[in-house]
Design a protein around this nucleic acid. Structure first.
Lengths: 166, 166
DNA sequence: AACAACATATTCGAGCTCTGATATCATGCG
DNA sequence: CGCATGATATCAGAGCTCGAATATGTTGTT
């Protein structure tokens, strides 16, 4: 048997005994703060994606970079940063790990002396294709319970949150 | 003047010249993958929250932990992990930083020898209150452009994504 | 030509998050 | 009692993310 978690019976303030809510209840459910719900959903999806890609040795951020370089070969580090809403330093770490693992290659820009242009290697192409299938499977389940109108509303909201200016 | 980004004129494969999409266009807009849009929105909100809380020396994850401990005093590290969908090690890092900064205090559980119960310190209470106001302001803008029905759909979807089982 | 302004890349330090492994405590069973 | 099981805490290592600072390259102005 399982004891009902020691902290469920608090000895401190009597009236504040924590009746811990289950996932989907109280602040964690549909009544919670929108920002909190957004973070929760994002954490859950990231976790699922990490598990789905774990045996391919690719992390979710790496998958995003691979996808972008696959779609726009010749991208620079700075281009990737703008495209992903991340900082150049962040992209630099991810790109570094992908170059070390052999999925990405870079060569200097023929005109501009400082820019390094990125492209997928052979193994990078294959890896991206394998990841793509796993992620697409997850993706399909995301829209499962939504009507067309609801999905449109969700998409519109997500874009508006992403683009809201400071 | 600003040159239109060197990588916009690729010398490599001619037909693959990257016409980089603006934020809100192409895959980044409402036609993109739901998972990608969710990540983008989450990144954007996290960034805004980081900026809003920066001068209070509190990070978004720290704010989440402070809020939870404020709502349920006596929580343990493991309780927090379950509540936040994070791993105990992760929560341990955040709690460690909050204890070091003096916002959280912990005492051993009176019955169970290993559990450490958490509570807000005086400064923790004040800090949480200040953060609360900033975050509430951000929060209100999240639901700004949504009708009641749309907001309900968004909330329902976020919860379903967060709770979807593997 | 010299300079200012800007973009790009990189380094450093900090915080967040995970997997995996280890140690301690509590409970239940032989 | 002794041991297995499970919960808790913690350590080690890896990757992601940021702000700040530095160095280098490009462009436009003087």
């Amino acid at each position: 048997m399982r004891k009902p978690s020691p902290s469920s019976c608090l000895p401190g303030p009597p009236s504040l005994a924590p009746q811990l809510p289950e996932p989907g209840e109280a602040k964690r459910g549909e009544q919670g703060h929108l920002g909190y719900l957004l973070r929760q959903a994002s954490v859950a999806l990231r976790t699922r994606m990490e598990r789905a890609l774990a045996d391919l040795e690719v992390t979710p951020p790496q998958f995003v970079v691979l996808t972008m370089v696959g779609a726009y070969p010749g991208l620079s580090n700075a281009d990737l940063a703008r495209l992903s809403l991340l900082k150049p330093q962040t992209v630099s770490v991810i790109v570094g790990n992908l170059k070390r693992s052999g999925a990405l290659v870079s060569r200097p820009h023929p005109v501009h002396g400082r820019i390094r242009q990125l492209a997928l290697s052979e193994t990078g192409e294959r890896s991206l294709a394998r990841c793509r299938r796993r992620v697409d499977a997850l993706e399909r389940r995301l829209a499962a319970g939504l009507s067309a109108a609801e999905e449109a509303a969700v998409r519109r909201w997500l874009v508006s949150v992403a683009l809201e200016s400071d």
